[in-house]
Amino acid sequence: MIIGINMIALPAQSGGGPFRYFQMLLKKIAEYELIDVSFIIYKQKQISIEYLAVPSSLNVEYVDVPNLGFGIRRILFEQTLFYLYLKPLDVLYSYCTSMPLLARCKKVFTLHDVYYLTTKERYGFLQRTYLTWMTKLYCKLCDTVLTVSEFSYNEIRKYLKVPEDRLFITYNFIDNNTTDPKRPDKLEDVNGRKIDMDKPYFFYVGDLQPGKNIKGMVDGFVKYANTRSDIQLIIAGKSSSYGQEMSHYISNFDNVFYLGYLSRNDVNWLLKNCSGTVLLSFCEGFGIPPLEGFGYGKPALTSNMASLPEVVGRAGVKINPYKIDEIAFGFKTLEEQYLEYVQNIPEQLAKFSPIKSAESFMDALRINYKPYSCMNM
């Protein structure tokens, strides 16, 4: 069985949540004995094999396509010249909404969310219209659609009418073998301000875009902490035009720092040592940073919308992201009732089993494998 993995939507070595999700899936799949299975990974040529970090135990061939960047050029290439690079495949999978729709094989992709249909914070009218039309086309022409949470499953059924027999959940998860990251030599924000790594802090990691409610998070923290010098809010992730605006706004506060895009080691170190993760999005298909924090025993402050209550359960504080007073109270509650939320983390983590996610993914692609229990006897 030959499985193609379409990763040409990744334009730079700074992948976000969907890329991280698929990296973890491959790592877990590599722990199984796959029977007569090989992979062909299609990527833009500037993306190194080292960055993809595909486990060496998997039988993988890499095919480079030109440097396409991000946007219309990649989309046009995918539906035209990409066919010249495609080899005979049994299945072609994409970790996001990116697929040569006329490929002559079983086509599977992961649709993480549909919040461009339900919120207006991130996309303008024309972009929402385009994404809606394209997503409906992908759902119609692909054989199987995967998604990452019960919330997203219900939203896809409601707005895109994907039949139940073609839509499956493969939950996001974290590796149970959480890494022990190395302490960075130093950390600085984008304006050159040094971070006191021994001072308590709350931590946000993710893209800086309007749907993530960065300004609301900062305003709520500042309202709670005011000018306190004993607590910080540290923000890390990919920037954008909105991110540049937020970076300038953040520079007005002595206890809020934006560090830009960080290495995985530095992100893990910040997760391990924070007072709690923060994710106050208006909409999330899943929201993996709270789970990553749970892996290090850290509770979360999240919005009470979309998939986040499903993800966080009783291991975090959930508030209305539109109300600054509630956000401020959420920081206060998390700080004062820290141990109460920490004790609920194991129960919440157990709901997102790496084994179940990996096996549901392989079943959807019809991969023949020996069950995990057999591999560990």
Results as ranks from 00 to 15, higher is better:
Arg157Trp: 06
Asp165Lys: 06
Asn154Arg: 14
Pro181Gly: 01
Ser149Leu: 01
Phe109Thr: 00
Asp165Glu: 07
Thr132Arg: 07
Leu137His: 06
Tyr171Thr: 12
Tyr171Val: 10
Val162Cys: 00
Gln127Phe: 14
Thr170Ala: 03
Pro181Arg: 03
Arg128Asn: 10
Tyr116Pro: 10
Tyr130Ala: 07
Phe173Ala: 03
Arg122Cys: 15
Gly124Tyr: 14
Asp185Arg: 04
His112Thr: 14
Glu121His: 15
Lys161Ile: 11
Leu117Pro: 08
Asp165Ile: 08
Thr170Tyr: 03
Thr118Phe: 00
Ala103Pro: 02
Lys182Phe: 14
Asn176Glu: 10
Asp185Ser: 14
Val114His: 00
Thr135Trp: 00
Lys136Ile: 07
Thr179Gly: 15
Cys139Tyr: 02
Val145Asn: 00
Asn177Lys: 09
Phe151Asp: 12
Lys182Ser: 04
Asp165Leu: 09
Tyr123Asp: 09
Tyr159Cys: 12
Lys107Pro: 06
Phe168Gly: 06
Leu146Gly: 01
Tyr115Glu: 08
Leu102Gln: 11
Ser152Glu: 13
Pro184His: 03
Val190Leu: 12
Asp189Ile: 02
Pro184Arg: 07
Leu102Pro: 08
Lys182Gly: 11
Ser149Pro: 08
Ala103Lys: 13
Asp180Leu: 09
Pro184Asn: 15
Thr147Ile: 01
Asp113Tyr: 00
Thr132Tyr: 09
Gln127His: 09
